[in-house]
């Protein structure tokens, strides 16, 4: 596999080359089309928020970014999605490796019914990222630390992860994703099942993770998008309506539909 190093400047709004780029993406569930010609750049080490009314296709779009839609029967995709300028739907790209590079955190916390330690160690183990038990311990510790969970769980590493609270479970899932040292982390409404305090913690965590990872977050809460993201994309009826810096989108939206949504006229 040749490494493509040439980076084209495709997006004027970002000074740097985008980490991921989506071009003319159409998605079909069987006969019905769910996404229409989506073009979007995702900038490195920034938080990009995807907002829009429910059913607008933002979660579907997110799942295209690490090919999670492959596991669903009857989904067909047109257009291309690149990671570091390599098409992730290319035949030469391996989906297992791709998902290691683009991690994902789901709407509902889904810890495996194993111990806390084993949950975090799962990724490094299957990908063979560590050579010794000590190294694995180190990775688990670092990941839990990054997820801000270490203080809460350091004495109960061998206990089942299902015994944690909802917020802790979600942060464990983030730690689990981080442990594979991905480049991009996709988050699908990570706070929708959490209470406000747990939500605040996860938001804080997302802000910290920004220094090391590129993050794409789907959220139904505009406040959350405003709080955590640098760039925001607004989806409506399967189309990307508007994308821009978060400040601009929330203070000065160009499109009428965006304006309508963020002022709460529909949603």
């Amino acid at each position: 596999m040749a490494v493509v190093t040439a980076r084209a400047m495709t997006d004027g709004t970002s000074a740097q080359a985008p980490k991921m780029a989506v071009r003319k993406l159409d998605l079909f569930y069987g006969e019905s089309q769910a996404l229409y010609e989506v073009d979007l750049d995702i900038a490195e080490k920034q938080v990009t928020a995807l907002i829009g009314p429910s059913g607008c296709g933002k979660s579907t779009f997110l799942r295209c970014l690490n090919r999670m839609n492959d596991t669903i029967d009857g989904v067909t995709i047109k257009g291309n999605v690149t990671l570091d300028d390599r098409d992730i739907y290319d035949k030469a790209i391996d989906v297992v490796q791709l998902r290691a590079r683009i991690g994902m955190v789901f709407q509902k916390p889904n810890p495996f019914p194993k111990s806390i330690y084993d949950n975090v160690a799962y990724g490094p183990r299957i990908h063979g990222l560590v050579n010794s038990r000590d190294e694995l311990d180190e990775v688990v510790m670092t990941s839990l630390e990054k997820a801000g969970l270490i203080k809460e769980v350091k004495d109960r590493m061998a206990e089942p992860a299902t015994g944690l609270s909802g917020g802790q479970q979600q942060r464990l899932c983030i730690a689990r994703a981080v442990a594979v040292s991905p480049e991009v982390i996709l988050m699908d409404e990570p706070c929708s099942a959490l209470d406000p305090i747990a939500t605040a913690k996860v938001e804080e965590l997302i802000d910290e993770l920004r220094s090391n990872y590129t993050i794409v977050i789907v959220t139904h809460s505009m406040q959350q998008a405003a709080r955590v993201s640098q760039r925001t994309a607004f989806f409506h009826l399967g189309k990307l309506v508007e994308v821009g810096d978060t400040d601009q989108i929330f203070t000065n939206p160009k499109d009428e539909r965006t304006k309508g949504y963020i002022t709460g006229r529909f949603g």
Partner: peptide, 14 residues
């Protein structure tokens, strides 16, 4: 690890 402070990633990127 339990000490406060911003964590650093000691690992080289994969």
């Amino acid at each position: 690890r339990a000490k406060p402070g911003t964590p650093k990633d000691p690992r080289k990127p994969v």
